Computed example of a mutant assay.
Amino acid sequence: MIKLEQITKQFRLSNRSLTAVDAVDLEIREGEIFGIIGYSGAGKSTLIRMLNGLEKPTGGRVTVNGMEMSSISGADLRKARQKVSMIFQHFNLLWSRTVAENIAFPLEIAGVKKADREPRVRELIRLVGLEGREDAYPSELSGGQKQRVGIARALANEPDVLLCDEATSALDPETTDSILDLLTDINKRLNLTIVLITHEMHVIRKICHRVAVMEAGRVVEMGDVLQVFRSPQQPITKRFVSQVTETHDIKQAIGQLVRENPDGTLIRLGFVGERTGEPVLARLIRTFDIDVNILQANVSQTHGGTFGSIILNLAGDEAAVAKAVEFLHSEGVETEVIERD
């Protein structure tokens, strides 16, 4: 569906060259929700803009649904863009047009007759849950409603790909979840390929099938979301995962408990799928003569399944603690010994 081959994008500044995207290889499958995450300046917005030809790569090839976006221009590019739609952080609505008129605008540009536009607009209004708001203007809408208009407008020409550029960053958490639920529903109903860029790991966890992590213009880690959450490899990925799995309050509480219990071995356990409900800790406590203190525990849901993590402090005879850790390994529990600061 989407293939990036050694994509590079450089910008000429007054006295130097800036590499925003650096030799990225990426494949996105048809019908999946693919997330690209990175902090500001990572290159993710530049990358996504090359998928619909808003930016041309300095080097490499961008192919979307068989069309090489990196080489076409003019009428061919305009036609290709009808199948690669985009929604934005700040909605980009036409403030002098009503909801229905905003949604109809791409159809007008495409030369669709009014008699054919109207049923399509009504269908899209139902799809995004804006019945009764057809004649409202953007100034009369909430942030979530504005983004629903943006989504409906992006779907007007029945695209194959929907690009989401920080589409929930301007929304409160509850509204963000409602928009993510809508995107998930659209993905399932229409088999629409969605590429979503964000700096929020909550967004990735909730709806994405796979994720690429960007840093300094490069993709430094990529994989199924569940696997990335279970076993992040790069320091930046671990920081993103900790946004969801370790809140500031929890970190402070763990730090306090560690200070109060300076002896022992800190370990982090990972459980996946059905294993999250198994009584492994109960067997551990019954089997070994050690003190087990649970410092943190949580269970999270990703698109690919459930995973849980527990941080323990094991105190007691050194040999007994070592055997306890070995027991956890033998039970198939992902176990990591945490170094104390």
Rank of each mutant, 00 (worst) to 15 (best):
E278A: 11
D249N: 13
H248F: 08
L182G: 11
D224Q: 14
R259T: 14
E246K: 15
I197N: 07
M201F: 10
T184C: 13
K206Q: 10
F229V: 05
E274H: 14
V211L: 04
V241S: 04
I207T: 05
E246H: 15
R218W: 05
M222I: 13
K238Y: 03
R218E: 14
V203R: 02
L196T: 03
V272I: 12
Q227I: 07
L190W: 04
E221D: 05
C208F: 02
V213Q: 02
V241F: 02
H209A: 07
Q256I: 10
T247Y: 09
P262K: 13
L182Q: 04
P262F: 02
D185P: 12
N261G: 11
L180Y: 02
L226D: 01
T265I: 07
T184A: 15
Q252M: 12
E200T: 06
K251R: 13
I204S: 08
L183R: 05
I204A: 05
V244Y: 04
L226C: 12
H202L: 10
I194M: 05
Q234W: 03
G270P: 13
S231Q: 15
L182T: 08
K188V: 07
L180C: 09
S242V: 03
R239L: 09
R230A: 15
G273R: 12
H202W: 07
Q233R: 14
K206N: 10
D181K: 05
H199I: 01
L190I: 07
M214W: 02
Q256W: 03
M201N: 10
G277S: 13
S231A: 12
V244W: 01
K251W: 08
V219T: 03
G223N: 04
A216F: 09
I207M: 12
V272H: 04
E260N: 15
L183Q: 09
V195C: 03
P279Y: 02
Q256G: 11
H199Q: 04
E246F: 15
V219F: 00
G223C: 08
I194K: 03
G223E: 00
Q227W: 06
D185M: 15
G255V: 01
D181N: 15
V258L: 14
V213F: 00
K188M: 08
E278K: 11
V220I: 13
G255M: 02
I197L: 06
T265H: 06
T247Q: 09
Q256N: 12
Q227H: 09
I267P: 01
F271R: 01
R218N: 14
I186Y: 04
Q227D: 15
V225L: 01
G277C: 07
R259W: 00
P235H: 00
L266R: 14
G264L: 04
V258T: 14
I197D: 02
L226I: 13
T265W: 01
G217E: 01
M214R: 03
I267Y: 00
